[in-house]
Design a protein around this nucleic acid. Structure first.
Lengths: 210, 210
DNA sequence: TTTTTATCCTAATGTTATTAGGAAAAACTA
DNA sequence: TAGTTTTTCCTAATAACATTAGGATAAAAA
């Protein structure tokens, strides 16, 4: 049993080493310009050995976001637990997500630049999980409508599109510009502007008092 | 002279044929899965002949958005000419752009899925032109502030981010879902919601009367 | 110790982008 | 028009990679 464990650990360890090498190189040089030789050298292996761990280059590309996004999804529940009110939840959602992006910039770069272009993207686990991540927002907007924070005639899916669209736009630019500034610049203004559009006039004018 | 013209025309004609073949194949199969052999066959040429017209596969990829976006940029002036007021201009901008996307779905797909992932994207002419396209919006918001349509404390760059982010999000999803529905579904609601966040309270409540 | 299994390697193989070198055809010159 | 240059195109390399074959080494199991 102990031996079995250490075997699995070493196998797992090599796998992680390969993933980290790929992550680094993909995000530095792009998917196309990174070769299997590059990755295996970086990981201290021969190319052929790498194929014991992954089916190929594409499999390797898809594995990276898969791990990251599923971990995000798992964390999200925790993060929103106990927060009261739709606006507070939205705020937490945005700050949480951007912080996760800042903490894992390589993963984020791969997700935002290389994933969507992959022909299989729509059929991946990642895509399903990203959808779940965004579906949370629809729930939050609906909750806001029930408790009177959000306009009763707000279409939750449209609200989600605006929220996600803006968020993704900010992240994509950041990633393209090589993460050379803070993601949180002007975030308060942006958040207030967007959410202002969703809130009832009551809560909007109350907000003016701050 | 006449001969010279016909020569240029035939050269230009072949070039266009190659571009259209590449456009079709890239958007059908993706950039990576499309080979130079595919493209040259489709265009009725040998691979080697293609290299007389383009430096390579990447050059071909970048040429497609380059043509499309620079044509867009040229058209935009015309389209906004004579339209009075920031809100009306914004509306025209959005409807115009989405229509252009619908009319040139192959170009749009290439721009939205394959362009950003290219390592050289930031140094291309396309990127400069896309920036100009978006810079128009900043001007429109500033105009709206001057004439009182838009909130005086609105940050025009943030407004642009929200507008562009939402627009790009809608287009990206449409392109990923293989253009299987109309881009204009719910567009009115989306537009009103966004622009509602930017307008002064005065013009907001006036809007309610419609 | 022998056998099995996991991990890795060197050396193919096959696909694809790109180039070399030159033929065919068109355009130009005298 | 006959010769010359230029344009356009082709077949046949070359080179860069991804992926696979076949087997060596070493660890684990018997």
């Amino acid at each position: 049993m102990a031996k079995n464990n250490s075997k699995n650990n070493s196998k797992e360890h090599t796998r992680v080493r390969i993933i980290n090498s790929a992550k680094k190189l993909f995000s530095e040089q792009g998917y196309q310009k990174t070769t299997i030789v590059d990755i295996s050298k970086q990981a201290g292996l021969s190319e052929a050995a790498l194929y014991e761990y992954f089916q190929g280059k594409e499999d390797l590309l898809l594995t990276i976001p898969d791990l990251w996004v599923s971990e995000l999804l798992h964390d999200l529940d925790d993060q929103l637990f106990g927060i009261q009110g739709a606006v507070n939840k939205l705020r937490k959602y945005l700050w949480w997500y951007l912080r996760r992006v800042e903490q894992a910039p390589l993963d984020a770069k791969i997700v935002y630049l290389f994933l969507k272009t992959n022909a299989n993207f729509l059929n991946t686990e990642v895509y399903a999980n990203v959808k779940k991540l965004y579906a949370y927002l629809v729930d939050i907007f609906e909750e806001g409508q029930k408790n009177g924070e959000m306009k009763p005639d707000l279409n939750p899916r449209i609200a989600r599109d605006i929220f996600v669209g803006t968020m993704d736009h900010i992240i994509t630019r950041w990633v393209l510009k090589d993460m050379s500034y803070s993601l949180f610049d002007n975030l308060d203004q942006t958040f207030n502007l967007i959410v202002g559009a969703f809130k009832t006039d009551q809560s909007n004018s109350a907000d003016y008092l701050n």
